[in-house]
């Protein structure tokens, strides 16, 4: 008990002393503005510089490549008719990863496809620990050429620039039956075939979730169908755990149209005050 009372009296004496308080106050007055100056505007101004550099590259292009805005639009809104995806408001890490994967493709290695469709559920799994994890690839005649000229800094700048751009989707009209079937697939998937719903990963309204799951709403219908086709043919193979590949392999042509129509029918806005 003597120890407790000793500490208590010691503290009371200290706190009653005016010099302790003034020292604390002075310390705070020096430290707080320093912390604010050091942390807050420093990083944001750096990001602003990256963003400006990204904007310069996007609108003017470089010595080797075209400007991004020639296809993707002045505000990164894409082209609905041509099926060119929007970039505005996408997650910066997603944009970065896609550019890396575009720069990697096409791979030099020869990939031998199995000509006979196998019943994989009956195949014994012996390679569980010997799996080789290839980096992802995306095939696109234009983007493969463009992405190869970009440096890592360029990718970072472009990603920061496009992720901050505002975007407002224009809902497109389709017939009721298509939308109803699309909605059923988007919200519930095809449970009897083990096909999960779109919303279970891409967000409740298809607005995307994090750096891994990109938005579906606001993307052109042609682009979405084209991407699923590319997953089916192996020309796009850069998803985590090949989840989207498995899913795309179970989608029929009708499913693709229905669900793409459903998502281009939705209204959506991002980065808009």
């Amino acid at each position: 008990m003597w120890l407790v009372s000793y500490i208590k009296h010691f503290l009371i004496a200290k706190l009653k002393n005016a010099s302790t308080w003034s020292a604390l106050l002075a310390g705070l007055m020096v430290l707080l503005p320093l912390m604010i100056v050091m942390l807050f505007p420093f990083s944001s101004s750096l990001d602003q510089q990256y963003r400006l550099a990204g904007e310069r590259l996007a609108s003017n292009g470089s010595r080797d490549t075209l400007a991004c805005i020639t296809c993707h639009g002045r505000q990164g809104e894409g082209d609905f008719v041509m099926g060119i995806p929007r970039l505005a408001g996408l997650h910066p890490d997603y944009i970065k990863k896609q550019l890396e994967d575009y720069a990697r493709a096409p791979l030099r290695t020869r990939v031998v496809l199995d000509p006979i469709a196998r019943d994989y559920i009956k195949t014994p799994r012996t390679y569980g620990d010997l799996t080789v994890f290839t980096p992802g690839t995306r095939h696109n005649d234009e983007m493969n050429v463009v992405a190869k000229t970009l440096s890592p800094e360029d990718r970072h700048n472009l990603a920061l620039y496009y992720s901050a751009l505002p975007f407002v989707a224009t809902p497109k009209a389709y017939d009721f039956e298509t939308l109803e079937r699309g909605e059923d697939l988007a919200l519930r998937g095809k449970p009897e075939y083990g096909l999960p719903a779109c919303v279970s990963c891409h967000g409740p309204n298809g607005q995307g979730f994090g750096a891994v799951f990109p938005p579906l709403v606001g993307q052109p219908m042609v682009y979405m169908i084209d991407q699923i086709n590319k997953w089916q043919t192996g020309r796009r193979d850069n998803d985590h755990l090949s989840l989207m590949k498995n899913i795309a392999n179970q989608l029929t042509d009708g499913d693709k149209i229905n669900v793409a129509a459903y998502y281009s029918n939705q209204s959506y806005s991002v980065n808009v005050e």
Binding site: T134, G136, Y193, G194
Partner: peptide, 15 residues
């Protein structure tokens, strides 16, 4: 952290 699994090494549950 893996980037992606190659196509040939994925099991598909056939229904």
């Amino acid at each position: 952290p893996r980037l992606s699994l190659p196509t040939q090494l994925t099991q598909v549950h056939v229904v």
